[in-house]
Amino acid sequence: MSRVAAAIDAAHAEGRGAFIGYLPMGYPDLRTSIEAAVTLAENGADVIELGPPYSDPVMDGAIIQEATQAALAGGFRLRDIFPAIAEITSRVDVPVLVMTYWNPVYQYGVDRYADELSAAGGAGLITPDITPEAAADWIAASERTGLDRVFLAAPTSSDERLDLVARSSTGFVYTVSTMGITGERAQLDAAARTLVSRLREHGVERACVGIGISTADQVTGVLEYADGAIVGTALVRALRDGGLDALAATTRALTAGTHRA
C-alpha cells in the first residue's frame, strides 16, 4: 500500500477523515516554505501537498497565484524542489505529494523527476493538467519508483473517464468539488457528493475532495461522504497574513473538523 493511502487509512482508524494541506513551495521564501510544510504536519495534517510555482497557473485562484508569482520573483527554481522535500521528509513522517503542472516534469525529464522525487522521500505527484491516457511515461516511472499518481476527477467527467481515472490513480483520486479555479467559497457544490458516489461505483476506495474548502464546518461536511478534505487557499492566506503562527492556528482549527461522530 502507498504511504498516502496508509495515512488516509490511519486517520479513518482514529475515527476521522484525512486532512490534506496544500502550500506553494518557495513562498514567502524557500526557507519559510520548508518550515511551513513542517508546521502543517506538526499541527494535524495527514498529507502535505506542495505546489512548485509555475508561470502559467491556470487552475489556481488569486491568492495562490499571488504566492507563486512571489516565489518565482524571489528566485525559486525547479531544482529547489528536491532538497526542500528531502529536508521536510527528514523531519516529519507525513507523506509529501507534489502538485505540479505537467510541463515542468516533462522538461526536467519524467524518469529523472521521478528518481529525484523518490530519493528525496516524496510520496508522488498530483497532476491536474494531464489525463491518464496521456501519461504513459509517468505511469511507467511511478510504477518503477513506487510513487503515487493522483489524477483528477471532475463533476463533468464521463463514466468512461472516471473508470480510467479510478484504474490509473494510486493513493487517492483528487475529487474536484466544483468547476473552476481554486479559492475559498461560501458554499460547496453539491456535485462533489454525487461525484464521490460515482467514483465509488467505479471502485475508488479513497476519494479526497478539494477546491473551495476553507472552514472546519466545510471539512466536516465533505468528510460525511469523502475520505479526505484538501485545503489550500485558506492556509496560504494564513501564512501570508500571519506567518507560521497563523498557519499553525488555522491548521489546528481546520483539522478540528475532521472528527466523525
Rank of each mutant, 00 (worst) to 15 (best):
V236H: 00
T251D: 05
T178P: 01
A10F: 10
V38Q: 10
E184T: 13
A238N: 11
G122S: 06
G15D: 05
S55Q: 09
T39D: 01
D163A: 15
E42P: 05
A253T: 14
H202T: 07
N43E: 08
A256E: 15
G17D: 15
A10Y: 03
F82S: 10
T39W: 08
L254H: 06
G109F: 07
W138A: 07
V92A: 13
V196H: 11
Q107R: 08
L23M: 06
R144H: 10
G15Y: 07
Y108Q: 10
A135R: 11
V4W: 01
M99E: 09
T156I: 05
I213F: 12
I213G: 14
Y174S: 08
L50C: 13
D245V: 03
R161N: 13
A45V: 06
L97W: 07
G15E: 04
G44M: 00
V94P: 02
E14F: 00
L72F: 11
I181A: 11
A86I: 04
A6L: 03
A246P: 11
L72K: 14
V222Q: 12
A7G: 00
Y174V: 01
T182K: 05
R112N: 05
G228I: 04
D46Y: 00
D9F: 09
A73S: 15
R3T: 14
L164H: 03
A166V: 11
L147I: 04
Y54T: 04
A135W: 05
T182D: 13
R252W: 03
G15C: 00
L72T: 10
R237H: 11
T32Y: 05
L40P: 06
G122K: 02
A37H: 09
E224Q: 07
V209R: 08
E160R: 04
S90V: 01
T32I: 11
P53S: 01
E49N: 14
V236S: 00
D137E: 12
G180N: 04
G75I: 09
P28H: 07
D148E: 15
R193D: 14
A45C: 02
I8K: 05
A119G: 02
L23Q: 09
G121M: 14
P95H: 13
A234I: 01
L162A: 03
G122N: 03
D46R: 02
I211F: 15
A246V: 10
V196T: 14
A71N: 00
T182I: 08
V47Y: 07
L125A: 04
G257F: 06
D227H: 08
G257P: 13
L30G: 03
F19W: 11
L147N: 00
I213T: 11
Y27R: 01
G171V: 06
P132L: 05
A190G: 11
E143D: 13
A261N: 08
G122L: 07
D115F: 02
A120E: 00
H202N: 10
L162N: 00
E205T: 13
A114I: 02
R112F: 10
S33E: 08
A86K: 11
A114H: 04
A229P: 04
P24G: 12
